[in-house]
Write a protein that binds this DNA or RNA. Sequence first.
DNA 1: GAACAACCTGGAGCGCACTTCAGGTCAAGG
DNA 2: CCTTGACCTGAAGTGCGCTCCAGGTTGTTC
Lengths: 132, 132
Amino acid sequence: MTSSPATGAVLSPAEMSERTGVSIDTLRYYERERLLQNVARAESGHRRYSEDDVLWVEVLRCLRETGMTIEQLRHYCELGAQGDHTEPERYRMLMTHRALVEDQIAERTQALQLIDHKLGFYAAAAATETPS
Amino acid sequence: MTSSPATGAVLSPAEMSERTGVSIDTLRYYERERLLQNVARAESGHRRYSEDDVLWVEVLRCLRETGMTIEQLRHYCELGAQGDHTEPERYRMLMTHRALVEDQIAERTQALQLIDHKLGFYAAAAATETPS
DNA sequence: GAACAACCTGGAGCGCACTTCAGGTCAAGG
DNA sequence: CCTTGACCTGAAGTGCGCTCCAGGTTGTTC
């Protein structure tokens, strides 16, 4: 009985890129930056990504797209690699980032209002310049 | 009776930076990139920003912070300078950007869910490792 | 066994939005 | 007058997050 010898499906770089929407070059870049650790290799030396890797890359993208820097992500990964005793700090990191994301939502909600205001202005102008 | 000979208050670069939260260098950069046009000058050649400039810079920041590029902003400005007949296109630009901002909000709302999920995981782990 | 695609590595290059620099001008205070 | 600080210009530099390149290996297909 194997404990968890890597999740069933195993993906080539091209498949991984397809699945995650992240380019092959970026996947390698993340690995160089240690955001993606212990990626399996075929005997040929070619990478074989697991389903767990897919999930993790999705987390990475989620955090990146909301503004977490590569350096912060690396720190978060390194904490994870250091073991369970770093959980409190990882928790704090996520809480901090959570607040940032909420700020972004608030900022964008305000932006929508400003945009709608300007859109309303254009609509009014259009109505005025062709009165009938 | 003057029609609108520039808004009352007039601000030095330092004051403008203070008011808008945009650095003096960035203000000059925006002007070079033609995002900010017809900035008044004192006889000395020093810039004098109007209240209208303040409002416009606030719009610029709002659009920039939500991901509109400098190039797009320049295009938007150029349309404005070209006269009223470009309003339909400016309207379309804003509508397009509006959709983008809504996507960002949706994306970030999803991100919050993922973050909360992970936060929940850490909370559960903390509860388990110290059962009492 | 030859060609071709997919992969490997280390390192250089790129695009964007600023930011800094060098070298000078202007205006007020002592 | 002389200094000091805020301002001016054109141009070069920076930091980030990728993205691309050169030169080489692997492995499938005809």
